[in-house]
Write a protein that binds this DNA or RNA. Structure first.
Length: 472
RNA sequence: GCCCCCAUCGUCCAGCGGCCUAGGACGCCUCCCUUUCAAGGAGGUAACACGGGUUCGAAUCCCGUUGGGGGUGCCA
């Protein structure tokens, strides 16, 4: 009987949660949820210099937003200092580490003299220095043999010990380093599968050697996830790529769409259906099926996936999600509901809802210059069309103001204005241009008749007259 | 430099020795539908990096080359 699965996401609060870390977190979460294991959170905040506590809040907030719920309380690595120190004692007692007082400059100078090879040269290995202030502790890496592991994504992996340098485990100030804290905590917390980014691949043999030296149980397996890269094929970096999760949330992306898209990076469902509920992805996702090559984070496809999820929402749900993005005012729910399904079909992000419905809440529509040029300045029979529209619509009773009636009126106006085709039918395509710009300020938007119906008789006529007035 | 990883359309994924004249998706292009824009429908564009093996047979296995990336901290 194998032990129950337990995985962890171990972010370091040195930056906001970005799509790359979220991708790793997701792989952990999907794995744990499918097999009924535990998904733990461990904040790796041992570097006091670079830690920003407020970033922990951001990381937790974004994980919650994505729906990647974790089990138990987040563990702070900084609370585990004593355990790490005890582990250091074990290493010292076992002679697995030795003291070293070389400075980085010393090492570099010797390397230069020796032919320019970077890395530690083992200078202090046999000097028998006593551990003490200012002296780092280095791990005595075996000269021979290989250290390997089972990698769910990449198969059997192994490194020659001879290629590993004697890495530092404890700083000169007595503070244990990431490698030690990480390897120790994973074992101590009973982590069975270590799922992380490929950038940790080179750390893994050191990690394993450390656990061996401490007499700890190694994880059953690892999974080194493909890196997410930008269009230059470089690892996504928070510095140059603006990939913070919060910025996507604020740009109107749905968390389920983000999760869906992230899952598609390095993996594809067996039935080829890419856009689907997260619950289905939980059932289908397999680390064994993850493609090990780096994947480009494609905003265009994210956009498509988001649009699909947006359309799958019920009207009420769509409105609820869109509401926080209506910063210029929220039209009445009755008004919104009429246009909601139309808007839902057209937007790719929630931020795109506002420009489609803001004509309902502003006093005067903001006129888009290009739209004005296109439909008014360069339009045909514009004054005639506006005049005819005003006449026809003004003739309608307020209680007969429906999309159907409005459509008929505009059609009649088009005929009045001479906008007819060979068969004498109104050219609605041309006729609606000036009217749309007069009412919404733009040439593109939601279906006009419905928009007019919702805008109401008074405002519609007022805007048409105002625009007609501008033409002189 | 050294170590390591990766290598199928522009992008993501499928393919795990014959079903491949390589499939799906995004993007892009054309057409249809149409009150604008979308959505939808129908088409189209486009890839196995290269060279050696292994095999009756290779996109699939092995080796090399090339290319890309990651690591190489008393950061995580």
């Amino acid at each position: 009987m194998t032990s129950p699965v337990r995985v962890r996401f171990a972010p370091s609060p040195t930056g906001y949660l970005h799509v790359g870390s979220a991708h790793s977190a997701l792989a952990n979460w999907l794995f744990a949820r499918r097999v009924g294991g535990e998904f733990l959170l461990r904040i790796e905040d041992t570097d006091a210099e670079r830690n920003r506590p407020e970033l922990v809040d951001n990381i937790l907030e974004m994980l919650r937003w994505l729906g990647l719920d974790w089990d138990g309380e987040p563990i702070r690595q900084s609370d585990r200092g004593e355990l790490h120190l005890a582990a250091v004692e074990t290493l010292v007692a076992a002679h697995a580490v030795y003291a070293c007082d070389c400075t980085a400059e010393d090492v570099q100078a010797r390397n230069k003299a020796a032919g320019g090879k970077p890395g530690y040269d083992g200078f202090c290995r046999d000097r028998g220095l006593e551990p003490g202030p200012g002296r780092a502790l280095r791990f005595r890496v075996p000269d021979e043999g290989r250290t390997g592991w089972d990698d769910l994504v990449r198969g059997e992996m192994s490194f020659a010990n001879a290629d590993l340098e004697d890495f530092v485990v404890v700083r000169g100030n007595g503070k244990p380093l990431f490698l030690l804290a990480n390897a120790y905590d994973d074992a101590d917390m009973g982590i069975t599968h270590v799922i992380r980014g490929e950038d940790h691949l080179n750390n893994t043999p050191k990690y394993l050697l450390l656990q061996d030296a401490l007499g700890l149980t190694r994880p059953e397996a690892f999974a080194h996830m493909p890196l997410l890269v930008n269009e230059q094929r470089k690892k996504l970096s928070k510095r140059r790529d603006d990939v913070s999760m919060a910025s996507y949330r604020d740009a109107g992306y749905l968390p389920e769409a983000m999760v869906n898209y992230l899952a598609l990076l390095g993996w594809g469902p067996p039935d080829g259906i890419e856009v689907r509920p997260v619950s289905e992805i939980v059932d289908l996702y397999r680390l064994e099926d993850v493609n090990p090559s780096p994947a480009f984070f494609d905003p265009k496809k994210l956009s498509f996936v988001n649009a699909e999820h947006l359309r799958a929402l019920s009207t009420d749900e769509f409105l609820a999600r869109a509401e926080p993005f209506l910063t210029r005012g929220v039209p009445s729910m009755e008004a919104l509901r009429v246009l909601a399904t139309e808007a839902q079909e057209r937007v790719r992000t929630l931020t795109e809802v506002e420009p489609m419905v803001d004509f309902l809440v502003v006093d005067e529509p903001e006129v888009d210059e290009d739209s004005w040029t296109k439909a008014i300045t360069k339009g045909k029979q514009v004054p005639e069309m506006l005049d005819a529209s005003i006449t026809r619509l003004d003739a309608l009773a307020a209680d007969a103001w429906t999309a159907e009636v409005v459509q008929e009126a505009i059609g009649a106006a088009a005929i009045d204005a001479g906008l007819v085709n060979a068969e004498g039918k109104p050219q609605l395509s041309k006729a609606q241009g000036p009217v749309r710009v007069a009412l919404t300020g733009r040439t593109v938007g939601l279906p006009l008749w419905e928009s007019i119906a919702v805008l109401g008789r008074d405002r519609t006529l007022a805007r048409l007259r105002s625009t007609r007035g501008r033409l002189g």
